[in-house]
Design a protein around this nucleic acid. Sequence first.
DNA 1: TCAATTTGACCCAC
DNA 2: GTGGGTCAAATTGA
Length: 266
Amino acid sequence: MDKSKERVAEILIKGRNSAKMLQNLLRRKVDNDGSVSVDNIVMEIMGSFVDSLSVLNSFHTGKFCRVPVSPHMGLACSLDRVLEFCSEETGKNLTLGVRKRRGSYKRRTIDSRVKTSCTIEDGYSWRKYGQKEILNSKFPRCYFRCTHKHVLGCKALKQVQKLEDETNMLHITYFGYHTCSPSNTFSHHGGVLDRKNSKIYHNLLDNPLTITNVQINPSLEKDPSSPKDTESLTTLVWKEIMINDLECFKNYGILSDIPFANVFIS
DNA sequence: TCAATTTGACCCAC
DNA sequence: GTGGGTCAAATTGA
């Protein structure tokens, strides 16, 4: 192995040892409350290091050894993932002598919300990553991702296309949900958002503003107590509503039964 | 200098 | 084979 690869190996070994130490610390801490999930997480982390070292060694030997990671994970190891990791750590583009394949381009058919708006602003910080001319469309489609994609891992995306009528309105499609916070958000965490107790509601009474978005924490869709009708939920979530319509949302069970909601004020 | 945008190329689902 | 989503180098601008 050359110097840079030796350095990567050192970093990986150090990370593996740190993960082991963390496992020991956490194990002591969680034994009392009976939790066992920490072991699986740490095993996954350590498995990544073991696999990475294995692949790194294959640069030298020309062979890629698949190493069992844990009883839960089997033998799987993504070569692309390890190459990416090693390249980031070393600042060098490590390859196996062939052009690195790009990621998957699976088309999104679910989890999308559509709205029409006169402005592109929605309280979040977006970064444009592409623009395409669309067949039979007068205007191009612009592609945006969350600015915090790499820092916070936020996977929210949106597409914006100008409507072909005289209104200058924008057709906006959102994919995925923000896991970061918008810049101008009032947040309500826990309990019931209702007329009497909601600070947000009183704020709105004092200020005749428009509620532009109510975003449901995506993890709630797996919660048996959350609304079952995802279709109407996602449609309504992105509908522009006036303050007077707040009661309407309660009737749909969207605001009243969820433990987490963000209300964005424009 | 660095972050954001532009834009041609790449890639994959249809 | 084509259309559209994404990448990433080049360019722009603060």
